Amino acid sequence: MSNPNTQALSDAGVSIWLDDLSRERISSGTLKALIDEMNVVGVTTNPSIFASALQDGRSYEAQVNQLAADGADVDTAVFAITTADVAEACDLFSGLATDTDGVDGRVSIEVDPRLARDTRGTVAEAKHLHKAVGRTNAFIKIPATTEGLEAITETLAAGISVNVTLIFSLQRYREVINAFMLGLEQAKENGKDLASLHSVASFFVSRVDSEIDKRLDAVGTEEATALKGKAGVANAQLAYQIYEEQFATERWQVLAASGARPQRPLWASTGVKNPDYPDTLYVTELVANNVVNTMPEKTLEAVADHGKIEGDRVTGSYREANKVLDQIAKVGISYNEVVELLEDEGLEKFVTSWQQLRETVQTALDQAPGARKA
Rank of each mutant, 00 (worst) to 15 (best):
228 K>E: 06
176 V>Y: 00
164 V>D: 03
270 T>V: 07
58 R>Q: 15
208 V>C: 12
196 S>N: 14
211 E>V: 04
259 G>F: 06
210 S>M: 15
374 A>W: 04
262 P>A: 13
290 N>I: 03
232 G>I: 13
258 S>L: 00
184 L>A: 12
91 D>M: 04
121 G>S: 05
182 L>Y: 02
157 A>I: 03
200 V>N: 12
188 K>M: 15
213 D>V: 06
329 A>K: 05
91 D>W: 03
172 R>H: 08
13 G>R: 00
55 Q>Y: 04
329 A>G: 15
151 A>H: 04
208 V>F: 12
23 R>E: 12
349 K>T: 10
342 L>F: 11
203 F>Y: 13
367 Q>E: 08
42 G>L: 03
57 G>K: 02
150 E>K: 09
147 E>G: 05
328 I>G: 05
32 K>T: 13
37 E>W: 13
108 S>L: 03
73 D>N: 07
229 G>S: 11
189 E>C: 06
52 S>I: 12
145 T>W: 00
168 F>A: 15
137 N>A: 12
212 I>P: 07
199 S>N: 10
303 V>E: 05
371 A>P: 07
117 R>G: 04
338 V>P: 12
293 N>V: 10
241 Q>T: 07
227 L>T: 10
81 I>H: 07
113 P>M: 10
102 G>R: 08
236 A>C: 13
222 E>S: 15
135 R>C: 05
314 V>M: 03
214 K>F: 13
99 D>I: 05
10 S>M: 13
264 R>M: 11
254 V>S: 02
179 A>Q: 02
120 R>M: 09
374 A>V: 14
197 L>Q: 09
348 E>F: 00
193 D>T: 01
88 E>A: 15
344 D>S: 14
191 G>F: 11
348 E>N: 08
294 T>D: 11
355 Q>W: 08
198 H>R: 15
255 L>A: 00
366 D>Y: 08
319 R>H: 14
229 G>Y: 02
350 F>H: 02
194 L>Y: 00
85 D>Q: 03
345 E>W: 01
339 V>W: 01
277 Y>P: 07
233 V>I: 09
85 D>C: 06
98 T>R: 14
369 P>V: 06
68 A>N: 08
204 F>K: 02
300 L>C: 13
82 T>R: 05
43 V>H: 11
250 E>T: 03
153 T>W: 13
350 F>W: 12
17 W>K: 04
312 D>Q: 00
61 E>Q: 05
134 G>E: 07
11 D>P: 09
79 F>A: 07
314 V>A: 01
127 K>H: 14
285 E>P: 12
153 T>S: 10
115 L>V: 02
323 K>E: 15
343 E>W: 02
186 Q>I: 08
270 T>K: 02
